[in-house]
Amino acid sequence: MPAIYRKWFILCLLLSLVTSGLVMFSAIWLNRQFQFVEAFQPLDIWLLSGFVISQNVIVLPWFYWLDKRKAVQGKKERIPELVLHLLALFGGGLGALYSQQRYRHKTQKPVFQWVAWLGALLLICVLYPALLYGSENLFSFL
């Protein structure tokens, strides 16, 4: 694996973990303040939801914004397209669609549109059964 891919994958992983943790801590704190739900059970559904929210709201828009900024400035070291594709496929399809329109970035390349829609479809195919049938039946459903 080239060094540039390794660099962006590690940065993506760290940013995803940190933002997912912040989303979960915020949810726990808000729940203690206002008692929205009795308990975060099952916890894996809440962790999956926190990851998906952080990917779509924080991580992917930030990566698209950063890549657009580097493109406008004419810098050579930009975020590889493979990294943006993988982020969109693994939980960030809706964030990719939003970011493409918001920052007017990667809208002319059809492959980015297809990958973003496929990521959104995969997100729905994983989250819907998990919320409907529960996490213990998620992997038996798939």
Score class of each variant (00 low, 15 high):
Leu43Trp: 10
Val18Phe: 15
Leu122Glu: 00
Lys106Pro: 10
Ser135Thr: 14
Val115Ile: 15
Ile4Cys: 08
Ser20Asp: 00
Val52Cys: 08
Pro42Tyr: 05
Lys75His: 13
His85Lys: 09
Gly134Ile: 00
Leu47Ser: 09
Ser140Phe: 07
Ala27Val: 12
Leu84Val: 08
Leu48Cys: 09
Leu89Met: 13
Val115Glu: 01
Leu13Phe: 15
Ile28Asp: 09
His105Tyr: 07
Ala39Trp: 03
Ser54Gln: 06
Leu122Lys: 04
Ala88Lys: 09
Ala116Pro: 03
Leu14Trp: 05
Ile58Leu: 15
Leu60Asp: 01
Val37Gln: 08
Pro80Glu: 06
Gln100Tyr: 00
Ala120Arg: 01
Glu38Tyr: 09
Thr107Leu: 10
Trp8Ile: 00
Phe25Met: 14
Glu38Ala: 13
Leu11Glu: 11
Leu60Glu: 01
Ser135Tyr: 13
Gln35Asp: 14
Phe90Ala: 12
Glu38Cys: 02
Gln35Ser: 13
Ile45Glu: 09
Leu30Ile: 11
Trp114Leu: 14
Ser99Cys: 04
Arg6Ile: 15
Gly95Arg: 02
Trp65Asp: 04
Ala116Ser: 15
Gln100Thr: 02
Leu14Lys: 01
Leu132Glu: 12
Phe112Gly: 04
Ser20His: 06
Tyr64Asn: 10
Pro61Val: 08
Leu94Ala: 14
Val23Gly: 09
Tyr5Gly: 03
Cys12Val: 13
Val59Lys: 01
Gln113Glu: 04
Tyr103Lys: 01
Val37Tyr: 10
Ala96Met: 04
Lys75Ser: 07
Gly21Glu: 01
Ile79Met: 08
